[in-house]
């Protein structure tokens, strides 16, 4: 409970920890201000509750000795804001602006209401005859950096893999590129995160992160069909 990041889905990509770090940083910073404001709030409510024979003070809010109690916290908040912005922008750049060189590429296609995926197959190239097409199942190799190309067929959808900390809306008529590098073997949820009609609530898929051996075996078995 105290550390909110425990509630997040188990991280399974290289930048997941960086995003969780921003989350934790903000949590502690705003948590500090939140607690402090509440302490002041409830203290004042208790201290200055109406008591017989006690008259309220007359202050206007321009007295310098009083104003500093508002001003100093306020300056401190500006500093916190700058730290938060810097941390957020740094991670944003890493995840969304930067596109590091890839080990492999996949195509992700969203449509009402299914996900389909194109894997590169044995030649590790998309658009060749050995491409492996799947529906509602994405296969990846652990510790390999993947570029994904995201497309939509009809309406907006959003490609969200909570364990990877990635989310990107899919727009019909556009190819959107992004990347991730899974670093934990396992099976995780893919969810559509943008309302896309009556099937939005069932538009899930699974991503399976394989060991290199498993992945090779999967490619081999899938190519035979």
């Amino acid at each position: 409970m105290l550390h909110l990041t425990q509630w997040l889905v188990v991280p399974a990509s290289t930048f997941a920890d960086d995003i969780d770090f921003v989350f934790g940083l903000i949590f502690w910073m705003v948590g500090f201000w939140y607690v402090l404001s509440n302490v002041a709030f409830f203290y004042l409510l208790f201290k200055y509750r109406a008591q017989p024979g006690k008259k309220a003070l007359y202050v206007t809010g321009t007295e310098h000795d009083l104003l500093k109690w508002v001003e100093w916290p306020h300056y401190a908040i500006i500093v916190c804001d700058i730290v938060i912005i810097a941390a957020a922008v740094k991670v944003w750049y890493e995840v969304k602006q930067d596109l590091p060189p890839a080990d492999a590429e996949v195509t992700v296609v969203a449509q009402q209401w299914a996900w389909s995926f194109v894997h590169p197959g044995a030649d590790n190239k998309i658009g060749t005859s050995d491409d492996i097409k799947t529906v509602d199942e994405l296969h990846l190799e652990v510790d390999k950096l993947v570029h994904w190309r995201l497309q939509a067929r009809d309406v907006l959808h959003s490609f969200s893999v909570p364990a990877f900390r990635i989310k990107q809306d899919a727009i019909p008529g556009r190819d959107i590129m992004g990347w991730f590098e899974p670093n934990r073997v396992g099976t995780y949820d893919i969810q559509c995160a943008e309302i896309c009609g009556i099937g939005h609530g069932i538009m899930g898929a699974r991503v399976i992160v394989h060991t290199p051996e498993e992945y090779a075996a999967w490619v081999a078995s899938s190519s035979q069909h």
């Binding site: 404001s37 509750r49 109406a50 008591q51 809010g61 306020h74 908040i77 804001d81 944003w92």
Partner: peptide, 28 residues
């Protein structure tokens, strides 16, 4: 991101001023 986080500056100030209004009051 910059503009959004910066909006916390006036809003936080406003909330602080409301809380400060309680100081020295006779609260019912």
């Amino acid at each position: 991101t910059i503009t959004t986080v910066l909006i916390s500056i006036p809003i936080a100030e406003m909330v602080f001023l409301y809380i400060a209004t309680l100081y020295g009051g006779s609260i019912k």
